[in-house]
Design a protein around this nucleic acid. Structure first.
Lengths: 186, 186
DNA sequence: CTGATTTCTTAACAATTGTTAAGAGCATTT
DNA sequence: AAATGCTCTTAACAATTGTTAAGAAATCAG
């Protein structure tokens, strides 16, 4: 069906035809901004093909927080749930095909399938654990070690994502990342 | 009653006498380890008096992730919920008085007061937002700026916590923090 | 109060990262 | 294919941080 967390709701699977229309599919070119920082999010994105990133614009710097690839869900979740201005932006790295679930559709699903709440809790918990690990990695490792860690744990990121974004994800400059890579080679 | 999130459950407040025995109070000296890394957590702590920190031991370094003071709840939450080994440790910074809720008691409350689930979701969400902000701070600011940010947003930490722990929380060495403080003074 | 322990500061030097700038390498567009 | 724009690399220098060590300051235990 969707290849995402919603597949875990059998009742939805059964009545899929009724709910199909809540989802829209779009294709966007690279560098498209899907959510601007400061906007109130109205959509949840599911990556069908391509790559997205969430970022934070601060003092002219574009800081990347996380990368998303096929079959992952992307949203400025807290802001989406509480109708607040999102501090983060969502942008396409590659030309991407996305499935969109709007705020309305989301609420309909939440009303009709209460199991969704548990799944959401799990998603938030898992994302929380992920952020904790990242935070920890920043505290205990230097940039070189963080890059090696990324290379080991998430080689797809290193393979598919332009280095400037990886650098901002690691908290260093592109120049410094280039130097680190150079040293690792030799 | 407890001065924490459980106060938001009126039904519990009413029947408090029945549930009081689920909670225990203990006093511990500074530097007590309340939860070792690698253990499966069985308790949630509420700080009545004193200060705790959660930390991660890695390569001999003791890395601090967060500080907790009066009326805050402390737990290795994900591990507690899923009965997994906790990657983090919980330690006392000051001599502290704590209220303890065991896994049993927690489950009894969860069974008798389903509202707790929503509150838990909120807590996890809020902690998630907090970690996101921290992560962001690491990505966009250098150690000096992070220290100034901490000084502004959380002066209590700077006032009450020994510098070595603040340094490890900022991801730098105590020597470097001392230098930064020296420069700020002048 | 005193001695012992722990924590904090300072210094010197090494290593790393930031900054700026120039050029090479790629990719996209026309 | 040529031109344009974007990305990555390299270099030089400045600034920051890590490391080690020694001593000062603060805290704790008896």
């Amino acid at each position: 069906m969707l290849g995402i967390f919603l597949d875990r709701i059998p009742a939805l699977e059964e009545r899929w035809e009724e709910y199909r229309e809540l989802f829209t599919e779009i294709s966007v070119p690279a560098k498209t901004t899907l959510l601007k920082a400061g906007e109130i999010p109205t959509k949840i994105f599911f990556v069908r093909q391509g790559a997205l990133r969430i970022s934070f614009d601060s003092k002219g710097k574009d800081v990347t927080l996380q990368f998303f690839f096929e079959n992952e869900m992307v949203a400025s979740f807290d802001s989406f749930m509480n109708r607040r201005e999102s501090p983060i932006a969502i942008k396409a790295i590659e030309p991407s095909t996305l499935t969109i679930l709007g705020k309305n559709g989301f609420e309909i699903l939440l009303r009709d399938f209460p199991e969704m709440k548990d799944i959401l809790f799990e998603i938030v918990s898992r994302r929380f654990a992920h952020y904790s690990r990242l935070l920890l990695s920043y505290l205990r490792n230097n940039p070189r070690e963080r890059y090696l860690e990324l290379l080991e744990e998430n080689p797809e990121v290193v393979r598919r994502v332009p280095q400037q974004y990886i650098a901002s994800f690691l908290g260093i400059t592109p120049v410094s990342l280039s130097r680190i890579r150079n040293k690792i080679r030799s």
